[in-house]
Simulated scan of single mutants.
Amino acid sequence: MILSCKVEKPNYMAVEIERKFLVVCRDYQKESYQKAYLKQGFLNSNKNRVVRVRIQNGKGFLTVKGKSNANGTTRFEWEKEITCNDAENLLALCEKSLIEKNRYLVKSGNHVFEVDEFLGDNLGLVVAEIELQNEQELFKKPHWLGKEVTGKKKYYNSNLSKKPYKNWL
């Protein structure tokens, strides 16, 4: 028996190209045009895929990310908006600890940096990410941008939920 299904188009599906940096000072806060509180957890996190649940600005999201390429800049990403109630229920099913953070959006040239100030067990860690159109794309680096940590798995949110920043020493 063949079942037919109505297929909805996802909100977002693409190959994500991003680079990640540590942040050396809090000047980004003054330059930010938007701030949001995020809470997220992982229904599945292994080396081949991550399934994330997130609540941001009263909206819920379900996201699937594939395995990163060799230099950690590129991977498949699918995201779908879900109800906040569904997201809360799914967060209760997530692995280990949840990630909480404040996210600042900062324009720099033609790009936007997402600067995450982690809270809870990851308090003290501040990371900036930039999404690019291709791996060689040039971008303006703000003075508060520090060491690049692209591809360093310990900085992935899914790993921070298992081995938080406070335990790195």
Score class of each variant (00 low, 15 high):
166 K>M: 11
14 A>L: 11
44 N>M: 15
28 Y>K: 07
142 P>C: 13
125 L>H: 04
145 L>I: 13
95 E>H: 08
157 N>S: 12
93 L>I: 04
55 I>S: 02
45 S>D: 14
118 F>N: 04
143 H>I: 10
2 I>F: 06
146 G>C: 06
31 E>R: 13
69 N>V: 02
46 N>F: 09
90 L>I: 10
61 F>D: 09
59 K>R: 14
79 E>H: 03
104 Y>I: 02
136 Q>R: 06
53 V>A: 03
88 E>A: 13
42 F>C: 07
107 K>C: 01
33 Y>D: 08
9 K>G: 08
119 L>C: 03
161 S>N: 07
78 W>G: 09
136 Q>Y: 08
73 T>Q: 08
121 D>H: 11
95 E>D: 14
82 I>P: 05
162 K>H: 10
97 S>C: 06
33 Y>K: 09
54 R>Y: 11
72 G>P: 01
128 A>L: 04
127 V>N: 00
41 G>L: 06
167 N>Y: 07
158 S>K: 00
163 K>E: 08
22 L>R: 04
41 G>V: 05
103 R>L: 07
162 K>E: 07
84 C>F: 12
113 F>H: 05
151 G>A: 07
19 R>C: 05
75 R>I: 05
153 K>R: 11
81 E>P: 03
167 N>E: 15
48 N>I: 09
96 K>E: 12
71 N>D: 15
125 L>M: 08
169 L>V: 09
83 T>I: 05
137 E>W: 02
